[in-house]
């Protein structure tokens, strides 16, 4: 079993969670952004290059279910994946709450980036008074779910915790 065999099922699982499971579990009408979380977790486990690649793939899949221009999520998520990857290679000997905080901050930042880039390509409706709630709840969901997602990706990408930049027990 190589990562090439293990990663696609994880992607499929993420799509199902993103489109069918978490939209049912809403807080203040806001659901978790699983595809963005998948990107962040990949970057935490695998670094900037894999983070960017996963961000692109996850973003394109997310775009399939959106009415915003195709490629907007891909553009946003590959940038988020790269930045988180670069950030994690600089933080050594981290404690457990660093990835949790990273996931929350990266999710909020990624969502702002999505809205910002969206506004640039004419999707002005993305900017609304609902935005603070969206940022807060998606960041919270990511913080809660990141530990599980990191474990899943460590299995999928066959990275053992000793070689990863982080100590996440």
């Amino acid at each position: 079993m190589t990562p090439a065999v293990r990663v696609p099922p994880v992607l499929l699982l993420a799509v199902v969670l993103h489109t069918a499971v978490f939209p049912q579990l809403r807080l203040f009408g806001v659901a978790a952004d699983v595809m963005l979380l998948l990107t962040v977790a990949t970057a935490i486990v695998g670094g900037p290059e894999r983070g960017a690649l996963m961000g692109f793939a996850a973003g394109l899949l997310a775009d399939c279910f959106l009415q915003t221009p195709f490629g907007l999520s891909a553009l946003t998520y590959c940038m988020v994946g790269w930045f988180v990857g670069v950030f994690q290679t600089r933080v050594l000997h981290a404690v457990w709450w660093i990835p949790v905080l990273t996931a929350a901050a990266a999710t909020a930042a990624g969502t702002v980036l999505f809205v910002g880039l969206g506004a640039v390509v004419g999707q002005d409706q993305l900017v609304s008074s609902h935005l603070p709630a969206i940022l807060g709840v998606t960041a919270l969901w990511s913080a809660v779910l990141v530990t599980l997602m990191v474990r899943l990706l460590r299995w999928a990408m066959m990275v053992d915790s000793a070689r990863a930049g982080l100590v996440l027990r």
Binding site: A52, F56, P69, F70, C78, W82, V121
Partner: peptide, 25 residues
């Protein structure tokens, strides 16, 4: 060096996304 390579990947992905975005738009 690894960061440099990942930067090239990122640039490639960004350009691809923008191309797709432009085509769709």
């Amino acid at each position: 060096r690894r960061n440099g390579r990942s930067r090239v990947t990122l640039l490639f992905l960004i350009l691809t996304s923008i191309t797709v975005l432009t085509l769709d738009f």
